[in-house]
Simulated scan of single mutants.
Amino acid sequence: MVEVLLAGGGTAGHVNPLLAVADELRGRDPETGITVLGTASGLEARLVPERGYRLTEIPRVPLPRRPSADLFRLPGRLRAAVRAAGDAIDARGVQVVVGFGGYVSTPAYLAARRRGVPVVIHEQNARPGLANRLGARWAHSVAVTFPGTPLRGARLTGLPLRPEIAALVADLAADPRGVRAAAAGVLGLDPDLPTLLVTGASSGALSLNRAVAGAAADLLGAGAQVLHLTGAGKADAVHAVVDDVPGADRYHVLEYLDTMQHGLAVADLAVCRAGAGTVVELAAAGVPSVFVPLPVGNGEQRLNAAPVVAAGGGLLVADADLDPAWLRATVVPLLADRDRLSAMSAAARTVGATDGAARVADLVLDAAGERR
C-alpha cells in the first residue's frame, strides 16, 4: 500500500486538482493511504472531508511579497507549520508528498526534504507561484498545466480534471443535446435559449457582477438567459439590479454552484476570470469564453487564457474595460451568432489534455516506487 500526502488549499484552483489526483489514486488502488494537508480557513476544510479524505490542519503561512509586519512573524510561523507537516508525514509513514502550491505546500516541501521523502509538484498556472518555484528546486517530478511554464524539469500533464468534469466531457462527446437538456432541467433553465454563464470563480468578482448585471436588460431583451454565479455574499447586490428588469425570470442568480458540470453543460458562452481551473474546464467542455483576467497578482491569469484565445476559443478583455457598453457591443451579438459560437467551441476543445489526473498519478506512483 502506498501512503501519499497531498498539500494544497485556500481556493478551488488548488483544491479541485488535488481531489482529482486523490480520486485517481484511490480508483487505481482503494487501499492507497491519502492524507490531505490544509488549513482550517480554506475551501479544503469543507471539500476534503465531503469527498471522504482525511484532512490534517496546519497553520496558514502566507509568504509576504513586500516588507511588512508579517515578514517578521514568518520564521516562527513557518517553523510551526513545517513541524506540523513533518508530524503528518511521520504519523502515516508517507512515501511521497504531492504539492499543488499555495500557503500549505511550502511547509510540506520543506518537511519532506528533511526526511528524504520525494516530492511531486503540480503547478496550475502558466506563471508559477512562490511555493512551487521553491519546491521545484529539489522535486522528484514537476507537472504543469500549460506549455512554457518556467519550472525546472517541468512535464506537461495538463490540469487534473475533477471526475465530474471529465465525465461531462465524455458525455458531451456522446450526446451533447441530451446532456444539455438534462443539465437545464436540474438548474431550472430552458435548454433551447442561448445561455450566458457568468462566474468570477469561487470567491466571485465584483467587477464582473456589476458589468453583467448592468447589461441585464440588453441580454434579456435579446432573448438570452443568464446563469450568474456571484460568489459568497454577493448575490443581493446583483438581485437589486436585475430583479426589476423585464424578463428577469430568465436571469438566474446563485452564489455558488457545487455541480459546475451542469453549468458547463448548458453554457453557450461564459464571461469569467481566467484562473487555471476555469480556463481548462471551460476549454475541455468546449465553452467559448470571454476571459477577464484578475487585475492584481503576478499576471498569471492573462497567461493562462492565452492558449485558448490564440486557438480562437475565447476573447480577452481587461478588467478595466469590462462594462455594460462593452458587453452590449460584443457579448450580445456573439450570443446570437450560432456559427461563430460553434467554431469557437471546436477551437477551445483543441487546447490542453483531459487526462491530467492520470498523468500526475503516474508521476506520484513512480516517486513512491523509488522511495520503496
Score class of each variant (00 low, 15 high):
2 V>G: 09
4 V>K: 11
5 L>M: 15
10 G>P: 03
12 A>G: 15
17 P>H: 00
24 E>Y: 09
25 L>V: 06
34 I>P: 07
35 T>D: 05
53 Y>L: 04
60 R>L: 14
61 V>Q: 01
63 L>Q: 08
66 R>P: 00
66 R>T: 12
68 S>P: 01
69 A>C: 03
73 R>L: 15
74 L>P: 00
78 L>C: 10
78 L>S: 11
79 R>C: 05
88 A>M: 08
89 I>W: 04
90 D>W: 06
104 V>N: 04
115 R>W: 04
118 P>H: 11
119 V>N: 06
120 V>I: 06
122 H>L: 10
124 Q>Y: 10
128 P>F: 12
135 G>P: 12
143 A>F: 02
147 P>Q: 12
149 T>K: 13
155 R>C: 09
156 L>V: 10
157 T>N: 04
159 L>R: 14
161 L>V: 04
169 V>K: 12
175 D>N: 13
179 V>I: 14
180 R>K: 14
186 V>H: 12
191 P>E: 13
193 L>S: 15
201 A>S: 13
208 L>W: 01
210 R>K: 14
219 L>Y: 11
222 A>K: 14
223 G>M: 13
226 V>L: 02
229 L>D: 06
229 L>V: 05
233 G>P: 11
234 K>V: 00
235 A>Y: 11
235 A>F: 14
236 D>T: 12
244 D>T: 15
248 A>Y: 07
253 V>R: 05
272 C>G: 01
273 R>G: 03
275 G>F: 06
284 A>M: 08
286 G>P: 02
287 V>W: 02
289 S>G: 10
293 P>N: 09
295 P>E: 13
296 V>D: 07
300 E>N: 09
306 A>D: 10
309 V>I: 07
309 V>Y: 03
323 D>V: 00
327 L>Q: 10
328 R>W: 06
330 T>E: 14
335 L>V: 12
344 M>F: 12
345 S>A: 15
346 A>L: 15
355 D>C: 06
359 R>Q: 15
360 V>F: 07
363 L>T: 03
367 A>F: 05
